[in-house]
Simulated assay, not measured.
Amino acid sequence: MRDWLIQLRKKLKLTQQQVADGAHIDRAYYAQIENGTRNPSMAVASQIATHMNINPMLFFSEHFNGPFEQALLNSPVIVAHCDTKLRYTWMFNPHPDFNMENIIGKTDEELDSNEGTQALMKLKQRVIDTGKTVKETIAFPLSNGMIQYFVFAQPIYNASGEIIGAATASTEIQS
């Protein structure tokens, strides 16, 4: 079951039929994708992702066993993408305080409003507004204390060269 997809669809106030129509696929096929009995092709994942404004790689994250995952899993590194409204479209290796299924489609403030999340949102907005990369250290109050991250952010562009979001790589700084 792809609970994250069901939650996102409901948050967007869409029916399965509306998503299927927007992705130009059959509703029954979409229902099978949503309940996890079928995996979409990359083309179909891209069509659904475009309609729902998410990263298509979310559909394949459970099969992502390559060197990237091996290198970063359980490391102090978080990698993420957001759209121009600062809503997460993809994330890898979130802090244990956050459930991956609850992150997609939400902003940092919707997940936990504090000075750290406000600073992170300002950083990402600056990247989207200027088209320039930004590096900054930001502290977040988490369950294991005040944790500082070195955050590197850069714009994400579509095929037409328009900024469609920001990508971040955040590394925990040991004090």
Rank of each mutant, 00 (worst) to 15 (best):
L120I: 14
M91D: 00
K13I: 07
N55Q: 10
I147G: 01
R87P: 03
R87D: 00
P40R: 02
M121E: 10
G165Y: 13
S170Y: 13
S175T: 09
V134A: 06
Q118M: 12
K122D: 05
P141N: 09
G105E: 05
A28V: 15
D83L: 12
F59T: 12
Q148I: 12
Q70M: 09
A71G: 01
T37P: 15
M100Y: 15
T84S: 02
Y149N: 00
K13T: 12
S160L: 08
H63S: 01
I164E: 04
I33K: 07
I164H: 01
L142P: 09
H63W: 14
R126T: 15
G161S: 06
K122R: 15
L73S: 06
V44L: 02
G145Y: 12
D108Q: 13
S143A: 03
Y30I: 08
I138F: 13
T117E: 11
I78K: 03
H24G: 06
P40T: 08
Q148S: 13
D112W: 15
Q118P: 01
F152C: 03
Q32N: 11
L72K: 03
N158S: 09
L111S: 03
Q70V: 08
D112A: 07
A28M: 11
I48Y: 10
R27Q: 14
I25V: 15
N144V: 14
I164Y: 07
E172R: 14
P40C: 05
G36T: 09
N55Y: 09
I103E: 03
G165M: 07
T137K: 15
E101L: 12
P67G: 00
V134Y: 11
A119I: 09
N158L: 05
N158A: 07
P76D: 01
E162W: 09
T137W: 13
Y88Q: 01
P155T: 08
Q70P: 04
W90M: 05
D97Q: 08
L73D: 00
F92P: 00
E115G: 05
L58T: 04
I173W: 06
K132S: 11
F140Q: 04
N53F: 10
A167R: 07
S61G: 03
M100E: 14
E115Y: 14
G105C: 02
E162H: 11
P67L: 06
I104H: 02
S75G: 08
N102K: 14
N93I: 13
G116F: 07
E110A: 02
H63Q: 08
D108M: 12
E172D: 01
F59K: 07
L8H: 14
A31W: 10
I104R: 00
T50Y: 14
A49Y: 14
Q174G: 04
A166R: 05
H95I: 00
N74E: 10
V77H: 01
S160G: 05
I33S: 02
D83V: 07
H63V: 04
N55E: 10
V151R: 03
E109H: 06
P155I: 09
K13V: 13
A80Q: 12
T133E: 13
M121C: 10
L58S: 02
I6W: 14
D21H: 10
A49E: 10
I54Y: 04
E62A: 08
Q17I: 15
I48T: 07
A139F: 15
E62I: 08
S113V: 06
